[in-house]
Design a protein around this nucleic acid. Structure first.
Lengths: 332, 332
DNA sequence: TTCGTGAGTGTTACCGTTCTCAACGTGCTC
DNA sequence: GAGCACGTTGAGAACGGTAACACTCACGAA
């Protein structure tokens, strides 16, 4: 920077002003400085800037170390949006969604002076830990299913509504009731899907079948599918996600129950290849990339106005949509 | 830091020495400093350290903005290993695997003073761009299929061998020949799989069926599957990855050709739920997390010895393994 | 004419580390 | 007992920017 200043015949401060688009610089001077910068191939040193301003131009993403489809695809949405806003993203993952590890991850990010954090927070432990983040560090939580009164902005999927839509779709097809292949009971998103499903059945005066605790993958879905396939009364199944649905489909197939002729199946997520399951899966579409972008814009919003207490945190709720394919059919 | 020094009754320099585990500090002094640090809840400012040392404690990952399974799951392997080594990872993604965007992404990372870069480099454009990275910035490429003589370290999957194993497995089952549902022809990894497949057929004296250009997803697999299903001579198909295999399975099913009774199918990748396809997919297992860890350790290795020209770059080659499930059976 | 005002620019301090080098014991060797 | 190496410590200068403030003009109003 000193070299640039010398070459342009100005002070380093003027160079700084040019870099930061300060208005009070004569156009001719600015040109001279820009020319000098070009000819010296000057690049501003971000570390020095960070030291002086306490702003790093970096955003932190707090992730969950696993191969769940949702969290992964969100990363790209966030990253590309962040790039557009001039930020780089750093990732810190936790192996376990517990208080301590999450705090440590936040700490790692804070130590690197991130300007804000987007936390993938599918379980309350993450959100709780977030409230203990250093003051002045803006956080946004995405995922999970909170009270809607969290002390920080959130972006969430309206899982209950999604589940209602899925269940109603099956009821509308004439099924007497709808069974549910549930996710892990300690995940609020899974619980919200159970709630939406159950409410819809109540409202329709349908029997509410029992559920068993599960997990998000096909293996767990297969287990549940075996249970459900054994019961000839089952004609419609709403699965907590597409991977579970994949397992359920296999179990039904092995039991000789045809989909959708004998049993209708609905998934949740609309992951990339669910249109190629056997049969192609009717499911609830979620746009995770969009979710990430929304989270980012929320974060930037709150970062810019975090002086004082500011307005109450915003809460974005995204409603999934039904994607009709071939795994559902009218009850016979 | 000044406060810590004052409280401990030493100079700031001594505090710095304690932080950096400099040997020449009296044990008693060190204790005093550590106590002061604890009581003041001192945290070293990384930006200042970066400014002084030009080392940021951050590693860059150059990714590809898409939902391909491999690249995604590598991230977690890298991140957790990096964490263990005391690094944070920053991610820069490109939308397009071309020269310019890749250079820009490298540039973004360089501007944030990353100490090294792991580039997901499935296509040569990435590797080429990497050679133009700023001098002194250590890079490692993972993926793709280079000459084995790249100027930087690489971690690669031995796709040709994987394809050979898959093809041989099908030949060993008694199939006269093996058809191939290929990936995109301009991706070296896809090409290597074609090569391995073709060589194996040659060696066995089997007919080499024609292939058509494809893509990595189930939709493309479905297209290829329809073509192959129409040909009653097809009894064995080696798919360039599991997603393609999913599409192929659907196409075969719709054509009334049973798997594995009429046709055997093998995939590549062993993605999480391929054991729950209909039928469960025999495939080539790749451990992407491990790939990421290998890449990281290679990077750290080369970073520590990058003074001078150092030794020639290492090249790691990982061989995939056959995972036998139910989509293959002896020819009838 | 005189003074205030605001645009344009420079000067100096400061952000929180590490690096370089000098200074001070202390114990050992000769 | 003098000289010397070495372990221990400190003072000051980087590192490369930004912030705060002072200064110089040109211009318009009093």
């Amino acid at each position: 920077m000193r070299d640039v200043a010398k070459l342009a015949g100005v002070s380093h401060q003027t160079v700084s002003r040019v870099i930061n688009d300060h208005p009070n610089v004569r156009a001719e001077t600015r040109e001279r400085v820009l020319a000098a910068m070009r000819s010296l191939n000057y690049r501003r040193n971000l570390a020095a800037r960070t030291l002086a301003t306490r702003e790093s131009g970096t955003l932190g993403i707090l992730g969950f170390e696993t191969t769940l489809f949702g969290p992964e695809s969100m990363l790209y949405g966030i990253e590309s949006a962040a790039r557009g806003a001039g930020y780089l993203v750093s990732v810190a993952t936790v192996r376990e969604l517990a208080h301590r590890p999450v705090l440590e991850a936040v700490d790692r990010l804070a130590q690197h002076d991130v300007d804000g954090i987007i936390a993938i927070a599918p379980k309350p432990a993450v959100a709780n830990a977030l409230t203990h983040a250093p003051a002045g560090l803006t956080c946004v939580a995405v995922g999970g299913a909170g009270s809607g009164a969290d002390p920080f902005p959130t972006v969430r999927v309206d899982n209950a509504t999604g589940a209602r839509l899925a269940t109603q779709h099956l009821l509308d097809l004439g099924h007497a009731t709808v069974h549910h292949a549930a996710g892990p009971p300690d995940w609020p998103e899974a619980q919200a899907r159970v709630d939406g499903w159950r409410e819809t059945l109540y409202a329709a005066g349908a029997v509410v079948p029992p559920i068993t605790p599960g997990w998000w993958d096909a293996a767990a879905g297969y287990e549940q599918g075996r249970r459900l396939a054994a019961d000839r009364a089952v004609t419609a199944i709403f699965c907590a996600n597409d991977r579970i649905a994949l397992g359920v489909l296999r179990a039904l197939h092995e039991a000789g129950r045809r989909v959708p002729d004998d049993v209708s199946v609905v998934g949740f997520d609309d992951m990339p290849d669910s249109g190629y399951f056997l049969p192609p899966l009717t499911t609830m579409h979620q746009d995770f990339g969009e979710l990430g972008r929304r989270a980012l814009s929320l974060l930037l919003n709150h970062m810019s106005q975090d002086d004082g207490d500011g307005p109450p945190p915003s809460h974005v709720l995204v409603v999934p949509e039904v994607v009709l394919r071939s795994s559902t059919a009218p009850a016979r």
